Simulated scan of single mutants.
Amino acid sequence: MQTLYRRLLGLMPRIGVQVTDLGPGAAVVSRRGGPYRGIRADKDTWVLRRAREGTGAAAGGGSAVRLGDTGALLLTEDADGPDERRLQLAAAEYLCTQHVTAMLELYGVNCVFDVGANAGQYARRLRRLGYTGRIASFEPTSQTFARLEEAAADDPDWRVFRCGLGREETTAEIHTGWNTMNSLLPASDYGKGRYGRFAKADTEEIRVRRLDEVMAEVLDGLPAPRPYLKMDTQGYDLEVFAGGGERIAEFVGMQSEVAVLKLYEGSPGMGEAVAVYEAAGFGITGVYPVTREATTGRVIEFDCVMMRADAAPVP
């Protein structure tokens, strides 16, 4: 059964309040143009009210933290506080998506290449945050592609492709059963020590295409294309990037999951990957942690957002 907290979050968009769910017990809420109206709930949830100048926003039965001067609040349901590490990573995902959405708007992006789409989580987040342009999602495995196809069914400007992308046109065996971490690369010793799912050895044969070979199909009928490349391919991003050839220059921005601690054999380190992207003309605009070691606090992977400065609009 939903808590009153969860029900109230579901009702808030009806009164013009944007809600971004960060997972169990936490959410970010914001509204442009004006103060928050008083919203009351039973004592086992929270009471949200606009704070007076110089004071924090209060929430009975939980907490509300003002996020700088943005007008947004971070709400938590549990009075004892959620797991801080989990909350930090959820907040980083929220901030990354907000930043990406702002860059798409600033650079006039009208087509997002969503490579490593899984079930369409990334595309759905972009839609929730207001991106209305074309999306092309690539997912090679049969079961996950079926979920992606279903997610995109009612969105006429969201196209889905059942294939992976890489350095050359070929077929390959991808490791499956790793949920959101399916990869064309084998797990490293470090990865096996961290994730029990890597003990599974199931594979599936998939089609692999080059990025520059699919661009004409994806961009067909789009006037003055300004594409953005998002890659989340579990250690294979540089192979996807290499498959863009000279047409990489057409992308005004990109996003790659870069590794500090390698989960996959043969995957590049963060420094190597960023150097390749910078050599192609992209500059970092944001870096956000994706996963951490609970015992040491070390970041395992970052989402790295990069834009081509010479493609920015002239002020």
Rank of each mutant, 00 (worst) to 15 (best):
residue 71 G to K: 02
residue 92 A to W: 07
residue 47 V to E: 09
residue 34 G to K: 11
residue 75 L to S: 03
residue 63 S to R: 02
residue 65 V to H: 08
residue 79 A to G: 14
residue 14 R to P: 00
residue 91 A to R: 09
residue 41 A to Y: 01
residue 77 E to W: 12
residue 66 R to G: 02
residue 71 G to T: 01
residue 20 T to Y: 00
residue 24 P to V: 13
residue 51 A to F: 01
residue 36 Y to T: 04
residue 5 Y to H: 06
residue 43 K to H: 00
residue 7 R to F: 08
residue 21 D to Y: 11
residue 76 T to I: 09
residue 32 R to A: 11
residue 21 D to H: 10
residue 22 L to R: 01
residue 54 G to E: 04
residue 14 R to C: 05
residue 5 Y to L: 02
residue 93 E to Q: 15
residue 90 A to I: 13
residue 31 R to G: 03
residue 99 H to L: 10
residue 72 A to W: 05
residue 14 R to F: 12
residue 75 L to Q: 01
residue 20 T to I: 02
residue 6 R to Q: 12
residue 67 L to R: 09
residue 15 I to K: 08
residue 66 R to H: 04
residue 54 G to R: 00
residue 30 S to G: 12
residue 7 R to V: 10
residue 78 D to Q: 09
residue 25 G to M: 06
residue 42 D to I: 12
residue 62 G to F: 05
residue 74 L to V: 10
residue 65 V to K: 08
residue 45 T to W: 15
residue 41 A to L: 07
residue 64 A to C: 08
residue 76 T to D: 09
residue 44 D to A: 14
residue 9 L to Y: 06
residue 37 R to S: 15
residue 95 L to P: 00
residue 95 L to W: 06
residue 81 G to T: 02
residue 52 R to K: 14
residue 47 V to M: 07
residue 89 L to M: 14
residue 23 G to D: 04
residue 67 L to P: 01
residue 38 G to N: 06
residue 5 Y to W: 07
residue 46 W to D: 00
residue 15 I to F: 13
residue 10 G to E: 14
residue 13 P to W: 09
residue 58 A to Q: 11
